[in-house]
Each structure stands twice: as structure tokens, then as C-alpha cells.
Computed example of a mutant assay.
Amino acid sequence: MRVLVVEDDAELGPALCASLAAAGMVAELCADGSEASFLGATEGYDAAVLDLGLPGLDGVGVLRHWREQQASFPVLVLTARGRWSDKLQAFEAGADDYLTKPFLHDEVALRLRVLRRRAWGRPDPRLRVGALALDTTAGRFTLAEQPLALTAQEHRILAHLMHRQGAVVSRAELAEHVYARDADPDSNTLDVLVGRIRRKLGRALLHTERGRGWRLADEGDGAED
């Protein structure tokens, strides 16, 4: 899950990114409203955490620009402004959730997982593909009801495939959602990681669509391994 964190507080921003990374997300920090406006309209984020008081362009202006540019990822407003008028303005601009400071870092991660699940049209907090299950609230995988051990990168890849279950996910899409924008993975990194995940799952769940990408689907659907 790739998240844009828009926060100009020099201590809070990095701390929030670190906590989201510890929760298995790729968090990219931006401290300027104008830059955030551009990034959200041009990059493939799964969600954003947005402060309202920003230099360059305020958070409501950023949010309006994103929605005008058809950026549909869910946005959690995180701000010290708790007045009803501020909340109303944020929701009217296109916010999906609103949390006032001070806050628990774990709650931010939880709300982002819920927002992403709803954005992908998955109302059930527990996603399943065959014997594989993802508890989106806790961010944990199980296989045949047993905990599934995954590295941080494997977890991000499998979580994205889980939300896109049944669909072919291209190499470009997968890289966009599991790596930060300034990361430059080796050309075969995804192949190696997907291979490791497949061995942990069993080949019946994770399929290779030659020349197109990968697809996570229940066994017996006739997909090519």
C-alpha cells in the first residue's frame, strides 16, 4: 500500500511515515501543498494522509485539485482543526475520513486499511483467496488458518494482489504500488519476490500470465502457472 503523507511538521511527518512503514506500507513524505497537489495528480497512490495547514497551498486546495484531476484514492485528513466548519469544508472538497490531532499512529494505519478496502469494493474486512486470507484490519495473512511468514516486501506485494484478486496485475502496476517513487529496483527483483511468495503459497494460487503479469486466484480456475 503506497501512501502519500502530506505534513509540514518536521517531527510529526517523519514519525508518521516510520509508523506506517512499520505497519507494512510504503509512505512518502511531502511537506509542501503545491508539490503535494502535483504528486497526487500524477503518481499512483493507494491513499493519502493530508494536513490542512500547509505552505504553498492549503490542504483543502490540494484536495480540490486532486479531485478535479480525477485522483480517486481515499484521503484521510489529519489536522489540529476540529471545528465543524473545517470538517465540512474538507468533506465537501473530497475527503473520505477526518482525524484530529493528537492521535494514535496505529489508528492512522487502521483507518487507511479500512479506506483502501472500501475503495476496492471489499466491505468484508477479511479477504480470502482459497486457503489464503488477509485480515485487513490487523494487516495479517494466514494460510489454511495458520500465520503466513512474509518479508515486508512480500507482504506489500501479496496485499496488493489480494485486493486485486482475479485480475491480471502488470509488473508496472505492482512496482508502482509497492515501491516509493524514488526507488529503482533491479529488473528481476519482482520476479524473485513473486517466486518466493508462490513457493510459500503453493503454485495453485499465484499464476503467471505470460507477457502480462500475475494473477492471484483460487486453484482450479485454469490459469497458466
Rank of each mutant, 00 (worst) to 15 (best):
G82Q: 14
G82N: 15
G82H: 10
S85Y: 08
S85N: 12
S85V: 15
S85A: 15
D86C: 08
D86H: 13
L88W: 14
Q89R: 15
A90W: 10
A90Y: 09
A90D: 11
F91K: 12
G94A: 08
D96T: 01
D97H: 12
D97E: 14
Y98A: 02
Y98D: 06
T100W: 05
T100F: 07
K101E: 11
K101C: 08
F103I: 03
F103E: 06
L104W: 11
H105V: 03
H105L: 14
H105W: 13
V108M: 05
L112P: 01
R113W: 06
V114P: 01
L115D: 02
R116F: 04
R116Q: 15
R117C: 03
R118P: 01
W120C: 10
W120E: 12
W120S: 09
R122S: 12
D124I: 03
D124S: 14
R126T: 14
L127V: 09
L127F: 11
R128W: 10
V129K: 08
G130Y: 05
A131I: 03
L132S: 01
L132K: 02
L132P: 03
T137E: 13
G139E: 00
R140G: 02
F141Y: 08
T142V: 14
E145G: 08
E145S: 13
A152S: 15
Q153H: 13
Q153L: 15
Q153G: 09
E154D: 07
E154V: 04
E154I: 02
R156P: 03
R156L: 06
R156M: 05
R156A: 04
I157H: 01
I157E: 00
L158Y: 02
L158T: 03
A159K: 03
A159W: 01
H160F: 11
H160S: 05
H160L: 11
L161G: 00
L161N: 02
M162R: 07
M162A: 05
R164N: 11
R164T: 07
A167P: 00
V168N: 05
S170A: 09
S170C: 06
S170N: 06
R171W: 10
R171P: 04
A172T: 07
A172N: 09
A172I: 07
E173S: 08
E173W: 02
E173H: 05
L174T: 00
L174I: 06
L174P: 02
A175M: 10
E176C: 09
A180M: 06
A180Y: 05
A180I: 10
R181P: 06
R181K: 10
D182R: 04
A183S: 15
D184R: 14
S187M: 10
N188K: 13
L190M: 13
D191Y: 07
D191I: 06
V192E: 08
V192L: 10
V194N: 00
G195K: 02
R196I: 01
R196M: 03
R198F: 01
K200F: 04
R203K: 14
R203D: 15
R203T: 09
A204Y: 08
H207Q: 13
T208G: 09
R210T: 09
R210H: 13
G211V: 05
R212A: 15
R212T: 04
D218Y: 07
